[in-house]
């Protein structure tokens, strides 16, 4: 019996082989399911989760090579460890399996001790890989984690159109002065939780967190239908959630939070910035500066949310915004019309 047990899918068109493999797998302490050919296996893989695939090569409908190709092309399945168990003739066929991504090849009839060693090693590798994925998701957003898994990591960026949202808590320094450090961190964590929820539920990612300030990107790394509308909806969700939070805080005598948002849409350069050892997914460019300046200007204008013209244009209801004409923003040579939500 093994310390780590797994659920294995055995794919073989031959009944004797399926029975034998199932028995071998179960005697090793694992759970076994069976599929009669590659096509059935792919259907089962799309609706169930398995830890390892034990794959025969010679099969009708969809053979083992085709299964390996289909797995490789599927981002959700390409990390699934595959052990080819076959009595296929010819070294070139075995090499082809490995080249197509098979973890290992065990000739039939399968030696139980060898099978145990290979399955244990695959389960351990899968456990480490799953752990790595979990960590990646904890320290990067789901979209960035997915982008890293699909495209790999490389420093550098590409030009694309996105919407950038900046927000921060007004007068946070003076609010925090009246609070214990523990209460300050608790308040910040509450704020982060609400903001992360609002941003990610609209398809955006949080790119930067600096104290009580956040920068979120909509439309990168994953393109979304209307990044401007998504960013504005996230700000509105956040504003509503803050209102609820403030109602609760008022009852317990806690300070009230007021949050300012600046949102701008346009060309950015987005990608991984930093070094080979430590980098973040971020974006830079004039649009980013504009969003930051708009957020700062909310204090001057006495409003919660300010948008640039490009963001307003893409909203479902652009007329719902109030124009603030000819605003001079630092770093921008021309005065701009900005819009309050």
């Amino acid at each position: 019996m093994n310390d780590i047990t797994g659920h294995l899918l055995i794919v073989d068109d031959n009944k004797v082989n399926r029975l034998l493999m199932s028995r071998s797998v179960e005697l090793l302490g694992h759970k076994a399911s069976v599929a009669e050919n590659g096509k059935i296996a792919m259907e089962m893989l799309s609706s169930n989760s398995f830890d390892i695939l034990l794959l025969d090569i010679e099969m009708p409908e969809m053979d083992g090579f085709e299964v390996l190709e289909a797995l490789k092309a599927n981002p959700h399945l390409r990390d699934l460890p595959v052990i080819v168990t076959s009595s296929v003739e010819g070294l070139d066929n075995i090499v082809r399996c490995i080249e197509l991504g098979a973890e290992d090849y065990i000739p039939k009839p399968v030696n139980k001790i060898l099978l145990n060693a290979r399955v244990s090693s695959c389960l351990e590798k899968k456990r480490l890989h799953d752990e790595q994925k979990r960590l990646l998701n904890r320290f990067a957003t789901a979209e960035v984690a997915q982008d890293l898994q699909e495209s790999g990591f490389s420093i550098g960026g590409k030009r694309l159109t996105a919407t950038v949202l900046f927000c921060d808590i007004r007068d946070f320094t003076s609010i925090s002065e009246s609070m214990s450090p523990e209460a300050t961190i608790e308040l910040l964590n509450m704020y982060y939780t609400l903001m992360f929820d609002a941003v990610s539920s609209q398809g955006g990612i949080i790119s930067l967190m600096v104290g009580d300030g956040l920068m979120a990107i909509f439309g990168a790394p994953k393109a979304i239908e209307n990044p401007a509308q998504s960013a504005v909806s996230a700000a509105q969700d956040m504003r509503n959630m803050t209102a609820l939070l403030n109602e609760e805080s008022a009852l317990s005598g806690q300070p009230q939070l007021k949050i300012g948002f600046g949102i701008a849409t346009g060309e950015v350069v987005a990608g991984y910035a930093g070094t080979q050892d430590r980098a973040i997914y971020t974006c830079i460019g004039k649009t980013v500066n504009l969003a930051a300046r708009l957020e700062a200007y909310t204090k001057v204008a006495g409003v919660d949310v300010l948008l640039d013209e490009e963001t307003r244009k893409h909203l479902a209801d652009p007329d719902a915004c109030t124009v603030i004409p000819s605003v001079d923003l630092k770093g921008f040579s021309k005065a701009l019309n900005v819009y309050a939500l």
Binding site: N14, V16, L20, E58, P60, S87, E89, K108, P109
Partner: peptide, 26 residues
């Protein structure tokens, strides 16, 4: 289809140590 069927017979013959059948099927 012929190759697959012969392969299947060979594979089973090997499971049971049926050497003559395994050789023929191969």
């Amino acid at each position: 289809g012929f190759r697959r069927a012969a392969h299947s017979l060979k594979s089973n013959a090997e499971v049971f140590g049926a050497g003559r059948l395994a050789d023929l099927a191969r």
